[in-house]
């Protein structure tokens, strides 16, 4: 039975789609059969970030409406075995995410895949709620600034009250905090919230810190998940985060500015 991971944030523009692409790619690279679904109906982006926009024939909404079957809509990634992309419709809107249809698709995907990564739209309306409803685990993508932290807090509240697990009074959705666009230099200058500030406010276990990096923009423009760029700090940071998600212990990097080796003990604490 596959595990459903929702990548969510409340706020827009914090890095949900980048994270969904990187996470799905990272899980597939580790040998897990993975599909990544775009829930952002009407604002289709995942296909671009995954570099498969010219191969989309059928989409999520076609499958929900029974116009196509899953195998017709799933796009197999050319670079990574075990990785499939499930694009959404650009012409429809969130109301097309009908509850029964989504439920049927998720049930079917869970039979075939180990991991189902759901790229949630921003907001707390129908689209975002549908994306988080089926979640077994949630990756809460947060930027180190107050409005993003508050929106994340709201989404965590919705995970605890509006998810299927909450409705059926099952074990709560597993929560993971992913801090993206983090700049230790700006934290030192007092322009950004620190890792500790964000953890203190959200009280959710920290899965990783993704440093602010130019390679993220470049990767999404060229349609390559940033995790495939093993040289870039952001790529390495995503690789760490996926490893931790899989249960590995990894040192928390990128929390402090470069070349501050004498504070290594602090890194360890941030990872705990």
């Amino acid at each position: 039975m596959g595990k459903v991971i929702v990548v969510t944030s409340g706020k827009g523009g914090v890095g949900k789609t980048t994270t969904s692409a990187a996470f799905a790619a990272g899980l597939a690279l580790r040998g897990h059969k993975t599909v990544v679904i775009d829930f952002d109906v009407g604002l289709r982006n995942l296909d671009l970030v995954m570099g498969c926009e010219r191969r989309v024939v059928f989409d999520f909404i076609n499958v929900i409406n029974g116009d196509a079957n899953l195998n017709q809509a799933l796009i197999r990634d050319k670079r990574i075995d075990n990785l499939y992309i499930f694009p959404t419709s650009q012409t429809r809107d969130k109301d097309a995410l009908k509850r029964e249809g989504v439920e049927r698709v998720m049930t079917e995907l869970k039979k075939d895949f180990e991991y189902i990564v759901c790229d949630s739209p921003a907001g707390i309306e129908h689209g975002a709620l549908t994306a988080l409803y089926h979640a077994d685990a949630a990756i809460i993508v947060t930027n180190p600034e107050v409005s993003s932290v508050r929106d994340s807090d709201r989404i965590i509240g919705l995970l605890a009250s509006k998810s299927r697990r909450a409705e059926k009074r099952e074990k709560p959705v597993e929560e993971h905090l992913l801090l993206t666009r983090y700049s230790p230099e700006r934290v030192q200058r007092g322009e950004m919230l620190s890792v500790e500030d964000v953890r203190e406010i959200l009280s959710v276990p920290l899965l990783g810190i993704i440093p602010e990096s130019e390679t993220v923009l470049k990767a999404s423009n060229t349609g390559m998940p940033v995790i495939l760029d093993a040289q870039s700090p952001a790529g390495r940071a995503y690789d760490d985060a996926v490893a931790r998600f899989a249960g590995e212990q990894r040192e928390m990097r990128f929390a402090l500015p470069e070349r501050r080796g004498f504070l290594r003990g602090w890194f360890g604490r941030a990872a705990s």
Binding site: I124, D151, D153, R154, I156, G157, L158, A160, S161, S203
Partner: peptide, 8 residues
């Protein structure tokens, strides 16, 4: 016993 989140 659980954190009371924004919006609750």
């Amino acid at each position: 016993t659980q954190p009371v989140r924004s919006g609750t």
